Amino acid sequence: MSAALLPKPQMRGLLAKRLRKHIVVAFVFAFGCAASYKFGVAEPRKRAYADFYKNYDAMKEFEAMRDAGVFESVQPKKK
């Protein structure tokens, strides 16, 4: 008698029904991760590089490294 009270389980289309939900959830999750990476990592990194190279003087940096003896093939500048 208790078997008649239980509803029949859904057998047809169960995979398709569950996949629709899971694909939407996966898409939203992936989009959220991509957006958080772009605005949390990539944009600040681009800004930091732009700020660094705004006032960067390559020759001044080279001369400082040369005077410090970093290069083996370049002699330090005589003072």
Rank of each mutant, 00 (worst) to 15 (best):
K46A: 15
K77I: 03
K8I: 03
R66A: 03
V41I: 12
V25N: 04
E63N: 04
L6T: 13
G69N: 01
G32V: 08
A16I: 05
Q75I: 09
K77Q: 04
K60R: 13
E43S: 01
A50S: 04
F39V: 00
A50C: 06
K8T: 11
E63G: 03
S73M: 10
Y56M: 05
Y37M: 10
H22Y: 12
D57I: 02
F52C: 08
C33R: 05
L19T: 15
R20H: 02
M65D: 11
A68N: 04
A4T: 08
M59T: 15
K17G: 03
A64P: 02
A3F: 09
K8L: 11
F39R: 10
G32S: 05
A30E: 07
K46P: 02
D57C: 10
S73N: 14
P44Q: 07
K54W: 01
K79M: 01
E61D: 14
R12L: 15
V24D: 06
G69I: 05
F29D: 05
A64L: 00
F62R: 11
S73V: 10
K8M: 09
Y53P: 01
R12N: 12
F52M: 07
L5Y: 07
H22K: 11
K38Y: 10
Q10V: 15
M1Q: 08
M1F: 05
M11C: 11
M1A: 08
K38G: 00
Q10R: 15
A58Y: 11
M59W: 13
L19F: 01
Y56S: 11
F27S: 12
M65R: 13
K21E: 12
R66I: 00
R47N: 14
V41L: 12
S2V: 10
G13T: 09
Y37H: 13
M11Q: 13
C33N: 12
R20G: 12
P76W: 01
A30M: 11
G32D: 05
P9L: 10
S36F: 02
V28G: 01
L6A: 11
K46Q: 13
A4M: 09
F31Q: 08
E43I: 07
H22R: 13
Q75W: 02
G40R: 06
M11A: 15
F27L: 14
Q10Y: 08
A30G: 05
L15E: 05
K17W: 04
R12I: 13
F62V: 03
A3W: 08
H22Q: 14
L19V: 15
R47C: 04
F62P: 02
